[in-house]
Computed example of a mutant assay.
Amino acid sequence: MSSEPRPEGERIAKLLARAGIASRREVERMIAARRIAIGGLIVETPATILKDLTGVTVDGNPVAKPEPTRLYAFNKPTGLITAESDPKGRPTIYTALRNALPKKTPRLMPIGRLDLNTEGLLLLTNDGELKRQMELPSSGIPRTYRARTFGDITQEQLEDLIDGITIDGIHYGSIDANLERRTGRNQWIEVTITEGKNREVRRVLEHLGLQVSRLIRTAYGPFELEDLPRGMAREIRTDELGRFRSWLKRAGGNH
């Protein structure tokens, strides 16, 4: 039984994501809205296979060749939304990034999110495909947080989280949690997760009866917040990024 040869190239959504136009999911929405064309013909499906982006336009504008992948670390303050705009008019991370990055910095997309009241390390990239790979739970990239909490908790209770926990029907996988220091009923807890589900750290700690008064992400994979000042950003060195991408490929993050 013969099969047709697989066409050469990659899906247009993947190529546009890599070019930094938008995430794959957003590109699919743009295609549905008939905003993307090839040689003047509207693209009907995100399954369209292309060798490159020659002749592709978005809203009538030619797509530039992809720039080299770049990755930035940003120390997000509380009170900022991880979005390009907010219907309620609240300040976003881009409000702060305009002052934290050089003017010629490429368009950046956040890798994952930090909610309004969570601070610390937020990674941003111009490569939508890298963004997708780093957000996939199957990549198993650890994210580490420090949480200032109030309430009664023991190290034994925290160690039970290594087996995962189910809260309101949502299962959270293995969590590595350790008491750092305690003053009365106040304590700092270091928490490392690999799934990154919505508000995971807060929900798990609150389920254990703790009040979370501060939550700081200190690391995402091998990239650490270190002494990066609040509200400031820095570019990850090319060699650091290269080593990480090699690891990501081995870990299966290119699925």
Rank of each mutant, 00 (worst) to 15 (best):
P68I: 00
T69N: 04
R70W: 08
A73V: 14
A73Q: 07
A73F: 13
N75T: 14
P77H: 08
T78M: 11
G79M: 04
G79F: 00
T82C: 14
A83C: 10
A83L: 12
S85W: 03
S85A: 11
P87Q: 10
I93Y: 06
Y94G: 10
R98Q: 04
L101T: 03
L101A: 06
K103C: 01
T105C: 00
P106S: 01
R107C: 05
M109R: 03
M109G: 04
R113I: 09
R113Y: 14
N117I: 10
N117F: 09
T118L: 14
E119N: 12
G120N: 03
G120M: 11
L122V: 02
L124M: 14
T125M: 02
N126A: 02
D127Q: 04
D127Y: 01
D127C: 09
L130N: 06
L130T: 00
R132P: 00
Q133W: 00
E135A: 01
E135G: 07
P137K: 09
P142H: 11
A147D: 04
R148G: 05
R148H: 08
T149W: 05
T149Y: 13
I153C: 10
Q157K: 12
L158D: 01
E159W: 10
L161Y: 03
I162H: 13
I162S: 15
G164P: 12
I165K: 08
T166H: 06
T166R: 07
I167L: 15
G169H: 06
G169T: 06
I170R: 09
I170P: 08
